Simulated scan of single mutants.
Amino acid sequence: MGAIVTSEVGNVSENGSVEMRGRAKEIIEQFRRDGTISPASAVSAEFDVWDQVTPGWITFATLKALVKIRWEKGESAAEQVPMKPIPSLSRGDATLVLRAFLGDISTMREVRDRGLITLASVVGLLSTMVEEDDLSEQQVDVLLEFGEETCREILRTGNPLRPTLRGVEVGPWDASEAGVLGPDRIDLGGLIIPSPVGLEIQPMRDGDDILAVTAVLGSTAIQLQAFRARDGSSWETIRHQMKDRMQAQGGVVKEWAGNVGVELRAKMPVTTQSGRRAIQDLKILGCDGPRWMLRGIVTGLGDDADSRDEWPYEMFMNTVVVPDFSNAEDSGICLQWPPPAK
């Protein structure tokens, strides 16, 4: 695990940041030593303060980072529950808390409403998992620094479900934001997408118009489609409309805090080519840009909720939208198929 945990994180120079991380570390060490948090430490943690970086918030963000690292190594929420009991949590409740930390928004609401996210539960889980993983002091320091920087990113963007601001460090980008693009790109007119080795692309046509493109790599595909933004056409609004429509069709749909913000994860009833009834898994990503919205629908092996396949997210975040507002009547941004390579 050390090779993962000791990845480079942003440098933080403020003395206050070092002090906050130091106090967070003291609280974790106190719990590991005494199995409890002293009243004075609980007060100094400022766990209920979320508009500035506090020791309590750093422990929260650090636990989330550690849960994600374990998940990337193949451990589900249930598998991550420590063998050592957590004083403030049953094993079932601990599973719910860890599932919420992985991004399940409905579970987030449940654990919040039940009051399961407390300083004691967060520090208890974090300190016990650090002990189980036998992390060194240096590894813990790196995790805490990453947790602190995550808190600062959230304060900068104002959105805890999307801690990185689109158009600054990551995409999807507007054509005006993209700067100089590398050579490994496919220009589709309304979209410019990455072209990793082995990628296949398939058009979705409506007569002579190309409305979307499906990018296929291995056993996973993502369909990319861009729309002009109009009144009421934000990703949040469309996401809720899609959720209601899919549920009306008999699907099971959840909102999930994923790599690019809030996404939908759905299980939809379908009829196969042979006429049999089956269930299809979908992940639906979305992002608002300047006067446009990009949607991505992930299918195949990467659509599973526990899939570690990251390339569809990377494809989505590295897509450039080139909006054409000449046809104001059409909500979709049509694409152009690239000419054959010479």
Rank of each mutant, 00 (worst) to 15 (best):
P55C: 02
E110R: 02
I117H: 07
T59A: 15
A120K: 10
V43M: 10
V130K: 12
T107S: 03
E132M: 13
R156P: 00
A40W: 11
G103D: 03
K68E: 10
P39A: 14
P160N: 07
A45M: 03
D104F: 04
A120I: 07
R70W: 00
R32H: 12
K64Y: 02
D134N: 14
V81F: 00
P55T: 13
I154Q: 11
M83Y: 03
W71M: 06
R33T: 13
D48V: 08
I86D: 03
T164F: 07
T157C: 15
L155G: 05
S90C: 12
A61E: 12
L144C: 08
F60G: 07
V97L: 01
S90L: 11
R156G: 07
E145N: 11
A45F: 05
I58T: 12
S136P: 00
S88E: 06
T54V: 04
E79T: 03
A120Q: 15
I86G: 04
T164Y: 07
S90G: 13
R166H: 10
G115Y: 08
M83L: 06
Q138G: 14
M129I: 15
R114W: 02
S44H: 12
M129E: 14
L116E: 07
D48C: 10
R91S: 14
L135E: 09
G147T: 12
L125E: 05
P87Y: 02
A65D: 01
S88D: 02
E132R: 15
E145H: 06
T59R: 13
L63K: 00
E75T: 09
W57C: 04
S127P: 01
G103R: 04
V130Q: 13
S136T: 13
G115W: 08
A77P: 01
E75N: 07
L66W: 01
T164I: 15
V168S: 14
P160H: 03
W57H: 01
A100D: 06
F101V: 05
S44L: 12
L165I: 06
T54D: 09
L63H: 01
T62H: 06
L143W: 05
T54F: 09
I117D: 03
V97P: 01
L116Y: 06
Q52F: 04
V140S: 13
D93L: 08
L165Y: 00
M129A: 12
S90W: 02
G115Q: 10
E169V: 10
M108C: 04
E75A: 14
L165T: 09
D104Q: 08
T62K: 10
T95H: 00
L98A: 06
R70D: 03
V53S: 09
E72H: 01
S127R: 06
E145G: 11
C151M: 14
E110T: 13
D104L: 05
P85D: 08
I58R: 02
